[in-house]
């Protein structure tokens, strides 16, 4: 089956939708141009409807044959909640991509992937690409609790998986960095680390690997607007210099990243985000039990 990448027919239709947990859904979207170009580390910008905002989401999977791309969205605010309420057969108004610079895939030896929460979904294609490039892949997957763990089987198909949960409901109780420290203490060979998850987690992953000198890369998640390099809203400080995460990243050297500035910048619209979500949930009967 071939797809006309210059046609706009049927674009951005959700051909398959699966709920992975009460707040996390997987969307398989028809977007043939993106499907033929996607590489591990790319992201797309989604917009649900007129008046909607532009949201960056990392690509989890893609199929040039079917002309589809797959994203996994966690309901954390108004737009993501609204997107996860989409049904199979409905369409996003806009999907732009693939955007960003793909991760450089090479043979490091042993690659450790550290994913937190919905970041596991974003880690998966990268870990898969490293596996295909001949690396041994070890993963640490962290979540608040068991029901927020996703893609455990997929990650396990790539190599050894260590699971940690905050409440101990799956794997070992504790943080991903506890599992990291154990690997280091056991003298295991780790040649590079790729981490995706909450900013605070990535920051501590970087701190845990810094004394060992292991090359460590984090997929940064600043606020984005256009995602094409024209506004600088997503600027992050790497080695003291401003970089645009949307075109230069989103994957950067974690040991050179100013995580504190990133944390503060992502909080810039917290009040507005809260107001928007409250207004939405008041108008819509909450389907997913967030409130």
């Amino acid at each position: 089956m071939s797809h006309d990448i210059y046609s706009s027919e049927g674009l951005y239709r959700i051909v398959e939708k699966t709920d992975l947990s009460p707040t996390v859904s997987k969307h398989v979207i028809y977007a043939p141009l993106i499907a033929v170009k996607a590489k591990a580390g790319h992201f797309v910008i989604l917009r649900s409807r007129e008046g909607g905002e532009r949201i960056p989401v990392t690509l989890v999977d893609w199929s040039p044959e079917n002309g589809t791309v797959t994203v996994i969205i966690q309901s954390i605010g108004k737009s993501t909640t609204e997107m996860n309420a989409f049904k199979q057969g409905e369409s996003f108004l806009d999907v732009a991509g693939p955007l960003g610079t793909p991760v450089e895939i090479k043979n490091w030896g042993t690659v450790l992937g550290v994913g937190g929460g919905v970041g596991i979904a974003e880690l998966y294609p990268i870990a898969r690409a490293f596996k295909e490039a001949g690396n041994e892949v070890v993963s640490i997957l962290g979540a608040r609790s068991k029901d927020l763990l996703i893609l455990q089987d997929e990650m396990a198909s790539l190599g050894r998986v260590l699971v940690t949960t905050d409440d101990g409901s799956a794997g070992r109780k504790g943080l991903v960095t506890d599992a990291m420290k154990e690997l280091y203490a056991a003298g295991e060979k780790i040649d590079a680390i790729f981490t995706i998850g909450p900013i605070v987690m990535m920051k501590f992953v970087a701190e845990a690997s810094r004394p060992h000198g292991t090359p460590t890369f984090a997929s940064l998640n600043p606020i984005m607007l256009d995602g094409t390099g024209m506004c600088g809203g997503c600027r992050v400080e790497i080695a003291g210099k401003p970089k645009f995460a949307c075109v230069d990243g989103p994957m950067f050297d974690a040991h050179q990243t100013n995580f504190d500035q990133l944390t503060k910048r992502t909080a810039a619209y917290r009040e507005s985000e809260k107001e928007s979500l409250e207004r939405y949930t008041k108008d819509h009967k909450c389907r997913i039990g967030l409130h």
Binding site: D94, A96, G100, V247
Partner: peptide
């Protein structure tokens, strides 16, 4: 013909 959401240089 107008095609939106295509960043030439990245997507094509």
């Amino acid at each position: 013909r107008f095609l939106k959401n295509v960043l030439v240089g990245k997507a094509l």
